[in-house]
Amino acid sequence: MLTFPLRFGIRHGLAAGLLLGVVSGVRAQDVFFSQPFATRLHTNPAFTGLVDDYSVTLGYRNQFPSLAGSFITGQLAADVRLNTKGQHHALGLLINQDRTGSVGYTRFEAGALYAYHTRLTPQLALSGGLRASYGRQRVGYDNFVFGDQILEDGSVAGPSAESLSFPPANYLSLGTGAVLYTEQAWLSVAGQHLNRPDLGFRNQSTLPISFNVSGGYKFFMVKPSTGIAVREVSFTPVASYTRQGSSQRIETGAYFLASPVTLGAVYRNISAPGNVNPQNLLAVVAGVQAGGLRVGYSYDVGLTQLSADLGGAHELTLSLSAFDRLENAYRRLKKRVYPTAPCPVF
């Protein structure tokens, strides 16, 4: 038997219990981001090398910030499009770490990505990607109080006699995906954890396959030209559907770009079959780009009581990237260039 420290309160204990249920193996789930295009390698390995010649992105997400021991995710992503004949090949690296203080839970995952780009027609291109990741998951119980530690007067003393020997779980995860795109539209399909890795500590607990389909269309009001100094004004509606195990997530929203500022709003519905109380959130996104530097911030606003009680989420991304527009213009003249991927960058 275990109890949560009294300082958590009822609401905090409930949220920590929900997190523990995820960790202990009934239904393990992936973290999701409110800036899916800044963290696009997490969504689909086929985005590797698709938006920039190369980029390095740092991401930070603090979910349930109003709770003690909120769920925190850090991400490092990097990709490069190889300057080989035809520029077909791209390589990437993706590192994620999830942790929460309330249950002493950490999950570390490092993956290598590869994407192959090809042009199907002068206006239509296809990118296919693969991802292989090594993961390590562990749980510590330093923040828990067990029944045998509570004295008659209610004070806590001594170590627990409970068995706390839970060796870390190591696993291999495989994923794949494809992106079909023109200069104004894209469609992304991806599957992660295709081998259903086991994350259990004592009992088997498989990580369900995650399936995602997303897309969007960019309407140009001012279309960027070739060269160094470019200006763009555009409006991009987006939609996404993700299913993992028994849960599903539906997202619809739009981004408005007036260089160098991007503003976006995405409605998110998270539910499970038979769940009469789905989570409804609105993610508000703002980003600015100065040369090769991009900074984005988003906040999840809870639209239902549970979402509001959990406290939403803060998310921050920082990206350094390069895209040679003059070289791109030269390749366009030689008809050896791919369409520019139209997806947002935040």
Rank of each mutant, 00 (worst) to 15 (best):
L293A: 12
L326S: 13
Q248D: 13
Q123V: 11
T106D: 12
T226N: 14
R119M: 10
K218E: 02
V285W: 03
V301Y: 11
S24Y: 00
L318V: 14
Y267L: 13
R196W: 09
S247P: 03
F256M: 11
D98K: 02
V233D: 04
D153Y: 04
D148R: 11
N275G: 02
L20P: 08
V284K: 01
G158R: 05
E162I: 14
S160R: 10
R107P: 05
E183N: 15
L67T: 13
Y54E: 03
H117G: 03
R136H: 12
V80K: 04
R27T: 14
F220D: 10
L303T: 12
P208H: 10
F37K: 00
Y255D: 01
G101N: 11
N170K: 03
R196K: 15
K223L: 06
T317K: 09
G177T: 01
E315I: 00
G158D: 03
T176H: 00
S155Q: 09
L91K: 07
N277R: 13
G129D: 03
L320A: 01
R231C: 00
N195I: 03
G292C: 07
I209G: 10
A112S: 07
Y181T: 06
G216K: 03
H12R: 09
S210G: 13
R27V: 13
T84D: 07
V261M: 08
A308F: 01
R294F: 00
T182Y: 08
V233C: 01
F47V: 09
K218H: 01
Y171Q: 01
Y181G: 07
A132P: 05
Q192A: 13
H314M: 01
L130F: 06
G13A: 15
P5F: 04
N203K: 15
E327Y: 14
L194T: 12
V284F: 04
L199M: 08
T317C: 09
P208L: 10
N170E: 05
A272H: 09
T118W: 11
A190Y: 04
T100V: 12
G17K: 02
